[in-house]
Every structure is written in structure tokens, then in C-alpha cells.
């Protein structure tokens, strides 16, 4: 028997993925993923583009419908057609690569709309919570701005505040800094680090290896739709065991050596 509603009090792992498969037509993107995220754990998912890491994240809150397998989110079986999808999603924040702020509302409006419409909070309460979260991400002086008037880094921090205003139990980050200019990445990562240190359960798809190593408890390396290697972040990033992980990390951490390794490992060490 599967549960259809989220259990917010339980101390069970908030994300339990078993045997997850996802195909787009003939293209199988996820080929059997098993992954459990514990309460308060920060898990980073890394891997080359096309490895299926974003699809994995989008399957967690069912923005993509899994082809086979099971996703338990806050105790609710997300693949059950009768699951209270909106009720579960209310407690699971998501941050997108392209921010996806609502351009027809101010920063404050972005943080209030779902509180008002979904949680049915009073205007005063929603305003107070939105204000508090915008202060938390360092944007107390930008609350009445439209998204178009904000920099990419500011937009992404509004998006985080918007998700936090729903008091989520889990936060999903889908390459949150990939669309940002390099000098703006730091502000967003700092907010995410604060969040992690405050004990938020987080799944982060990212290319920021220093963030994965320094902030996350565990890192997953994906390639070709499977988890190739996983382990404590420091171990996996500093001393990867699998060949594919080593090649990937070498390219990402030291891009100037790409051609050396592609020319057939001529280094004598």
C-alpha cells in the first residue's frame, strides 16, 4: 500500500528513489537509479551534460513522469496516479537554471503568490514571510523590483526566497548557477551554503565542484543514465575511484589539460 499524502513529521528519509527509469521516446535517459537522501543531508549530483542528472531531479517532484520505478517524496509515492501531487510539491522547493521568476509580479509578489493561493495564508502573514526570506537572501532593498530590473544573481536569489517562503522540507536545485555570470555565482552559492548549514535537506545538480566538495555531505557522479560512483563529497572529488569519474573531474577541475588526456594519456606519471 502506498501513501498518497506527504508525512511532514516523520524522520524517515525524505527522498527514496528505487529502480528509476526514464525514457524520452527511444532515448533512455535514466537506466535504473537508486538513491536515498536522509533528513538534513545535502547531496550534490555531478556529471557530464546529457548524463541524466537534471532529469533525475525533475523526476523527484514529477515535473517529468518516470517510465518505471518508484519515487517516495516525504513518504508519498509520487508515481501513484492518485498521489496528492500539489500537496507534496507545496513542501518541496525547486530552483531552476533559468530562474523562472514570474515577470508579471515584483520580487515580493513572486514570494507571496503561492503562499496566498496554495497555503491560503493571510496577506499580512504572506508579506511578513516573503519579506523575511528576501532579507535572508540579501535583497531587502530590491523587494519592489520587477525581475527584469534585477541581475541574474539577484533573480536566482529571489527564486530561492520564493521557494523558501513555502517552508519546504526539501529543496531541489537544478544547476542554479549555470546561467550566471562568473562574478555573480558567489552570492547564490553563499545563500545555498547558509541554507545547508541551517539543516535543509537539499539535492543539488551542479557543476560547481568546490561547492560540492565544501558544502555537500555526499556527491553522486552520474554518466550515461546511471550512478557511476557515490560517496562522501571530499573523498569522491579528491580521490575518485572510477575511471570515468577521474576523467570527468580532471576535465572540470583543470580544463587546460583536456587535450593531454584526449591525446591518449601521454603523461609519464
Amino acid at each position: 500500500m502506498s501513501t498518497l499524502t506527504p508525512d511532514l513529521e516523520s524522520s524517515a528519509p525524505p527522498v527514496v528513489i528505487t529502480g528509476l527509469h526514464k525514457s524520452f521516446g527511444d532515448n533512455e535517459v535514466l537506466k535504473g537509479i537508486d538513491l536515498t537522501v536522509e533528513q538534513g543531508e545535502v547531496v550534490c549530483v555531478i556529471g557530464p551534460s546529457g548524463s541524466g542528472k537534471s532529469t533525475l531531479l525533475r523526476c523527484v517532484n514529477l515535473l517529468e513522469k518516470p517510465t518505471a520505478g518508484s519515487v517516495r517524496l516525504l513518504g508519498a509515492e509520487m508515481t501513484d496516479p492518485d498521489v496528492e501531487l500539489n500537496q507534496v510539491r507545496t513542501h518541496v522547493g525547486m530552483v531552476f537554471q533559468s530562474f523562472n521568476l514570474f515577470p508579471n509580479m515584483t520580487a515580493l509578489g513572486n514570494c507571496m503568490i503561492a503562499q496566498r493561493q496554495v497555503l491560503k495564508r493571510s496577506k499580512a502573514e504572506a508579506l511578513e514571510i516573503a519579506t523575511r526570506n528576501l532579507e535572508l537572501v540579501g535583497l531587502s532593498d530590491r523587494m519592489d523590483y520587477n525581475p527584469a530590473k534585477l541581475s541574474g544573481g539577484q533573480q536566482q536569489r529571489v527564486a530561492i526566497a520564493r521557494a523558501l517562503s513555502m517552508d519546504p522540507k526539501v529543496m531541489l536545485f537544478d544547476e542554479p548557477t549555470a546561467a550566471l555570470d562568473p562574478e555573480l555565482v558567489g552570492d547564490v552559492l553563499a545563500v545555498m551554503r547558509d541554507l545547508a548549514e541551517a539543516g535543509m535537506t537539499m539535492m543539488v545538480v551542479t557543476h560547481e565542484m568546490s561547492f560540492a566538495r565544501d558544502v555537500s555531505d555526499r556527491t553522486i557522479f552520474m554518466d550515461g543514465g546511471v550512478i557511476v560512483e557515490e560517496g562522501p563529497s571530499i573523498d569522491l572529488i579528491s580521490a575518485p575511484q572510477e575511471k570515468r569519474t577521474q576523467v570527468f573531474l580532471k576535465r572540470v577541475l583543470d580544463p587546460t589539460h583536456i587535450e593531454d588526456s584526449e591525446l591518449g594519456e601521454t603523461e609519464p606519471d
Binding site: 515535473l63 500537496q87 503561492a114 496554495v118 527564486a159
Partner: peptide, 11 residues
């Protein structure tokens, strides 16, 4: 992305 953002908030 607008629809996805709204649906991910539980709307």
C-alpha cells in the same frame, strides 16, 4: 518554465 515554476510551488 513559468508553468513548471508555478506547479513546483504546489499551484
Amino acid at each position: 518554465g513559468q508553468r513548471e515554476a508555478a506547479r513546483s510551488l504546489g499551484m
